[in-house]
């Protein structure tokens, strides 16, 4: 069966496709989330070094992974939008940014919660935490730039440029912060040596990673749909939707 993928690159057909996909991903996300939290908080054994507090990694690690991954995905779609002038990919990039920023914030927040019992302080200038903070700045920069521009086409393109510049810079920033951190080793505690993990811990974490994935897809699709409606409000097909009363 040959599927014409380009059909779905038009906002109108993508809108209905996304509408069908959202419930599917939402349900999977909820199931995985419940399973992951159950494994993480009830099944996984207590860590002999860190006690119960370590369980925050079931939220912290997936959030940190997602925050980095989503930035790359966002830059990818923004770049596609810039190169091929496809509206939908640019909308996709704008839809990803808030979710990515949210995961970054969760990673920072849970990292700080974790830090208190582990290091005795809410914040350490650890290389990873610092990089994560800078990543949050990059997300905020992207979103503020897009918000400041009224013309959506310009917003798309300008956002794409800053996202691409950001993605090129992330390795450089990460490397610089790492170096800076090792230079000032005395002032901070390293979290790098993760003890070998029990299988159930690993399983719980992977389930949570998948749950975050499914959640992200569902939310991003939903947000893309809203952006499509906003941008295409003057077109006939959106007017048709409104008549049918299917715009929720």
């Amino acid at each position: 069966m040959a599927i014409n993928w380009f059909k779905y690159s038009s906002p109108a057909s993508f809108y209905s496709l996304a509408g069908k996909m959202i419930p599917f991903f939402t349900v999977i996300a909820i199931i995985l989330l419940a399973a992951g939290l159950y494994v993480g908080f009830f099944v996984a054994p207590t860590d002999f070094q860190q006690g119960e507090a370590y369980r925050i990694i079931f939220i912290h690690v997936p959030a940190a992974w997602m925050s980095m991954f989503l930035y790359v995905v966002m830059a990818f779609w923004a770049g596609i939008g810039l190169a091929f002038n496809t509206r939908l990919s640019a909308m996709f990039a704008s839809a990803i940014a808030p979710t990515g920023a949210m995961f970054t914030f969760i990673a920072l927040w849970t990292g700080s919660l974790w830090g208190k019992p582990m290091w005795g302080t809410w914040w350490v200038w650890d290389a990873r935490l610092t990089s994560e903070l800078i990543l949050l700045f990059l997300y905020i920069g992207f979103m503020s730039l897009q918000a400041a521009i009224d013309d959506p086409r310009r917003a798309d393109k300008a956002g794409a440029i800053i996202a691409l510049v950001g993605v090129v810079n992330i390795p450089i920033i990460y490397f610089s912060v790492q170096w800076w951190n090792t230079l000032h080793q005395g002032a901070s505690v390293s979290v790098n040596q993760a003890p070998s993990m029990a299988t159930t811990m690993l399983a719980g974490m992977l389930i949570m990673v998948f749950a975050s994935w499914m959640y992200s897809i569902a939310v991003i699709l939903k947000r893309t749909r809203i952006i499509i409606l906003e941008r295409e409000s003057h077109t006939a097909w959106v007017a048709g939707l409104q008549k049918k009363g299917t715009v929720s």
């Binding site: 800078i134 990059l138 905020i140 503020s144 950001g166 450089i172 610089s176 912060v177 170096w179």
Partner: peptide, 16 residues
């Protein structure tokens, strides 16, 4: 806005 966009990118230069 320009400070939001540019300052994070300045970090490596600042560090080194």
């Amino acid at each position: 806005l320009v400070s939001l966009l540019v300052l994070p990118l300045y970090i490596p230069i600042l560090i080194f």
